[in-house]
Design a protein around this nucleic acid. Sequence first.
DNA 1: ACCTGAACACCGTTCAAGT
DNA 2: ACCTGAACACCGTTCAAGT
Lengths: 185, 185
Amino acid sequence: MLDEYGLPDLTMRRLALTLNVQPSALYWHFENKQTLLAAVSDRIVRGTRVVHHGETDWASAVRIEAEALRNALLSFRDGAEVVLSSQALGLGAGEALARLTAAIHLGDFDERVERAAAAAFLHFLLGHVSHEQQRIQADSLGVVISSQGAKPSDVDTEARRERDSFDFGVSLLIAGLAVQSEVAR
Amino acid sequence: MLDEYGLPDLTMRRLALTLNVQPSALYWHFENKQTLLAAVSDRIVRGTRVVHHGETDWASAVRIEAEALRNALLSFRDGAEVVLSSQALGLGAGEALARLTAAIHLGDFDERVERAAAAAFLHFLLGHVSHEQQRIQADSLGVVISSQGAKPSDVDTEARRERDSFDFGVSLLIAGLAVQSEVAR
DNA sequence: ACCTGAACACCGTTCAAGT
DNA sequence: ACCTGAACACCGTTCAAGT
């Protein structure tokens, strides 16, 4: 349904219709829409399992995990916004945070540093991908935002640019964390 | 209205009621709710003007700007979420991005680096503060989320912790960007 | 230029009652 | 255990018509 209609049209009533059921029936299975969306977030995040990395360093582990999470979010329409909206309520992104924290933990930092860094990674990640997906959607609707002189810029080079700026952001945070580790010892 | 009711209850109908006007009247002034919220975002972001920093280095400039933006967002209930929701539509956060970019520009980086870094700062900033405000709201409703053994932890130390983890995130990004500048030359 | 009145096509959620 | 029927209290938006 998400892929077909997008988040704004993922309503309880439409979901019930798809399931050939009355809207009220959904409330036997989920307390409300928020918890339902949290469950959807979980499924989205768990989508991409990371290849069990042997004994790589923490930086590569974080990079791999970030990439995997980005792919998981990108694999559903509005994926990032779904997770963003349900973590805004304190639900749904726990799994993602745990995975990032585990990767960082390989670097053996102070525990509070690890928590704060994982949160920073997650904030960047969700923000960036939701921005990406908003662009994807706008493009698919043929909406032209780019002002003056910018060529149609084929989808491929556009996708590369997005990936590059994502990697750049991840690199910034990793480099910052690396400096932090040198300060610590 | 935002401070009194919060974003979820900031509806066109309630706004009209507050203004002693019919809901349809609002549509003469704004094309739709999205553009109205974008205007609200603008006001929130412009709230805190930065003290004209003389000739500090780019790192302090960025730190000051980030702090100012955080304060602007915190000064309205659900401020971060308002901006987040309207920048998800490509509107509303332009001013914030411009200010961060200007501060970073003092460091004289590659233009693409500056853009990507400013975006990274903004994503972290909005994500962090919206998380903060969600916590504030939960606390004010007396909702206890913290599991087991965590003391009630007075509001003051809680606020300090939030500020610290915000500063930490900003520091991560700044340190990462500093490394980037060394690579460049 | 700015607003009203009335309508359209929806929402999420509750709750008694059914099977 | 799981669902229906019916209702409640709302939404955003449009558009002819008024002043």
